[in-house]
Amino acid sequence: MTGLRVVIVDDEPIARQALRRMLLDFSDIRICGEAGSVDEAERLINDTRADLVFLDIELYGESGFDLVPRLDSKTAVVFVTAFNQYAIRAFEVNALDYLLKPVAKDRLAQSIRRRRKQQKLQPRLTLAQDLSLEDVIFVQNGKRRCWLALKKLCLIKASGDFTVLHATDGISGMVWRSLRQWEKLLPQDQFMRIHRGMIVNVNYINAFESVSGQRLKLYLTGLAEPCIASRRITPQLRKLLL
């Protein structure tokens, strides 16, 4: 297996040294360098074409979040910080993982395994571009983070500022994206917004029935509860399903 090219970004030399020492125990990790600022990190990561960046969030008046949009979408980011209040925002920018200092060896190993799996699957994890059915999405499920394959996605449901994703294999989780954003990203020939709070994968509609108010009740593969389409979208759904 080709070694992972890794860059460490932290404004504290002692913290960089501690992480470097831990990473040396992994035989397939190749540490390409260290940086203490956003600009320095951007140059180093681009020059080395790093596969994985361990990134501190608070960097002497800068934020590690400022670096993320300046990186290639193929570069995975693991945030390493002493503060847990940034976890939701890290999740929002699709970080591969979020490690709290002092970093535990088993959690570091888990992050590396995730990156190896990610490379094997070759997914595009950024949500800044259109998605294909070969992509996977990183979702939050309680305290766990997991991969959800887009080709198995059957339902997206609005939940405040988040959306909840459900897959036919039972995997579910939250993403900080609106339904409007999902509409722009998902393949339009397969996903349909059936009312203001829900998008379904029409390929997983395995049964339906009429209900009061000239609406349709949809039964989706992998879901126990049916979904109700709005009156406005029901005629379009009938033409598609009949």
Rank of each mutant, 00 (worst) to 15 (best):
R20F: 00
F138A: 03
L155I: 01
D25N: 15
L133R: 07
F83C: 01
T48K: 14
D130Q: 14
I171G: 00
L153V: 02
A35D: 03
I45F: 04
L220R: 08
I88Q: 09
R20Y: 00
S210L: 05
T221N: 08
L127E: 10
N46L: 11
N141W: 08
A229P: 04
V68Q: 01
F79M: 04
Y98K: 12
P13T: 04
S63W: 06
Y219C: 00
A41C: 06
L153P: 01
A82D: 03
I171A: 13
Y219K: 01
H195M: 01
I14L: 12
I57A: 09
R20E: 15
Q140Y: 00
V38P: 06
R124A: 11
R21H: 12
V53D: 05
Q214A: 13
G61S: 07
C32F: 00
A224F: 05
P102W: 00
R107Y: 11
M1R: 05
I45P: 12
L150G: 09
F138V: 10
E34F: 04
E209Q: 15
I112Y: 13
L185Q: 08
D189M: 02
D135R: 03
R114L: 15
P235F: 06
L153I: 03
G64R: 04
Y219H: 15
W147M: 14
K143W: 02
F162N: 13
R21F: 11
L131W: 02
G36R: 04
R16I: 00
I233L: 08
L131Y: 01
T81A: 02
V77D: 00
F83T: 00
L67M: 10
L216R: 04
L23Y: 04
L185H: 10
S63R: 05
K151T: 11
D106E: 15
L237T: 04
D10N: 13
L131N: 01
D135H: 12
K120F: 10
E134L: 06
E62Y: 11
L133V: 05
D11F: 07
D25H: 15
K152H: 14
L71P: 07
I194V: 15
A167Y: 02
F26D: 11
E58V: 14
Y98L: 09
R144I: 00
F191N: 00
R116C: 08
E92G: 06
Q188W: 00
L4D: 11
M198C: 15
